[in-house]
Computed example of a mutant assay.
Amino acid sequence: MFQMCLEFSRVVGKSLRQEFYEALDRYRPIQAHGNLQGKEGPHRASGVTEVRCLILRGLSVVVGDDPSTFLKACFLVMASKTSPTPCVQEGNSKSCRYQVQSILGEGTFGKVAKCTRMDDSKTVAIKMVKKRNDQAEKANAEVVILEKLKSLNADKCDIVQWYQVFNNNGYICLEFELLDKSLFDFMKERFFRPLFLSEIRPIIKQLANALEHLKSIRLIHADLKLENVMLVNHIQQPYRVKVIDFGLACEVSKAKVCSYIQSRPYRSPEIILGLPFTEAIDMWSLGCIAAALYIGTLLYPGNSSYDVMRCSQQLLSVHQSISVRNLSCSSRAKPPVSHFTWYKESTDGPMNVSEGHLYSFRATYGEVY
């Protein structure tokens, strides 16, 4: 913490730096420094606590009560890659500094931050994973997968470019190229209006290309969904996408039956039923993504695997009638779009999915505009 504060004081400028040191002087208990210099002693722990408190109070004087400013100060990263942690690879011994611009997202694993790499002013995305037992194991497993992905050309294979890994302040940090936005955020901005087929085709083609290359090195992504497909730069390169997040990825030879993988709406029948699986489960997820882009909603909604299987079974049961309806269309006519909505059998309103209820499927048709 003290090293972080010193690093902060070096970059805030002369006037703020002076104010920072004055704040420390105002709140510094002299005995704390005396306790810190001693190797042992009953007052050493309390002295360390007081030093930590004064540092935080000094920071609060400098940055004020603005949480975003305080967050940027606290996450000013000084990444020393000399740590003996297993996930740090050889050759990463030089130090880099990163200045956090914003937090792009966060979850149970940690945070993803938009950062500027100070040595070359390049903007990157850093995924910061907490060093807890379960999360650290997953992060190290992801590093193993990312190392294997280095054998592929990230741009040609439509997967995110990974640069390096380092440790900082209790976090395992993975540095990636900065991308634009996820397909989920893109659809959300459009209020989930369906895309045209001419817009969906290049997206699906790129995702299929990514899965083909993953298959060539015997890898399963295992978490393909709208949130894990990123637009590279939608203004300059419309519908150019890349696959991200290999936190659940595994080798085909190490695939374990009954693994808890894939998000529920994109989960394949093999995973739901606890059957042996291969990289083919990613193709199921790809089909769910294509359908979601085409109809503007999830193909298999539900709050449980039971609901997903019921929706899947009922959808497949009406597949034949939909195919017959399509065959009756003129070859020059615009193809019908199926707008899927799930209803409770006892009501006429959209379903409120819950366990144990029966649902019927209705398909309505309309033209693609």
Rank of each mutant, 00 (worst) to 15 (best):
Q3F: 06
L6C: 15
G13E: 04
G13L: 01
Q18F: 05
L24F: 08
L24N: 05
D25P: 02
P29K: 13
A32I: 06
K39C: 06
G41Q: 03
G41L: 08
R44K: 15
A45K: 06
G47R: 03
V48A: 04
V51F: 07
R52V: 09
I55C: 11
I55G: 04
L56D: 15
R57H: 11
V61I: 09
T82I: 08
P84N: 13
P84E: 08
V88I: 13
K94E: 13
Q99K: 15
Q101R: 12
L104K: 14
T108Y: 11
F109K: 03
F109H: 15
K111H: 13
C115F: 02
R117M: 02
K127Q: 10
K127E: 04
N133V: 13
D134M: 14
A139M: 08
A141S: 14
K148S: 09
K150A: 11
N153Y: 03
A154L: 00
C157L: 11
I159V: 10
V160W: 00
Q161P: 01
W162S: 00
N167W: 00
G170L: 01
Y171W: 05
C173L: 09
L179H: 07
D180I: 04
D180Y: 10
K181Y: 00
L183S: 07
L183T: 09
F184K: 12
K188L: 00
E189I: 00
E189V: 01
F192P: 01
R193F: 00
S198F: 06
I200Q: 06
P202R: 10
K205E: 14
Q206F: 09
E212T: 12
H213I: 05
K215N: 15
I217S: 04
L219T: 10
A222T: 14
L224V: 12
N228W: 11
Q236I: 05
R240G: 01
V241F: 11
I244E: 09
D245C: 14
F246M: 03
F246G: 01
G247E: 05
C250H: 04
S253T: 11
K256W: 00
K256N: 06
S259Y: 02
S263V: 04
Y266V: 07
R267T: 11
R267D: 08
S268G: 11
L273R: 11
L273F: 13
A280T: 09
D282G: 08
M283F: 05
W284P: 07
W284F: 08
S285W: 08
C288L: 00
A290E: 03
A292M: 01
L293K: 02
G296A: 08
T297F: 01
S304D: 08
S305A: 11
C311M: 14
C311P: 01
Q313I: 06
L316N: 14
S317K: 14
V318K: 12
H319S: 14
N326R: 15
L327G: 02
S330Y: 07
R332M: 05
R332E: 12
A333G: 01
K334A: 05
H339Y: 02
H339R: 10
Y343F: 13
E345P: 00
G349K: 06
S354E: 14
H357M: 03
F361S: 13
A363S: 08
T364Y: 04
G366D: 07
V368E: 04
V368A: 12
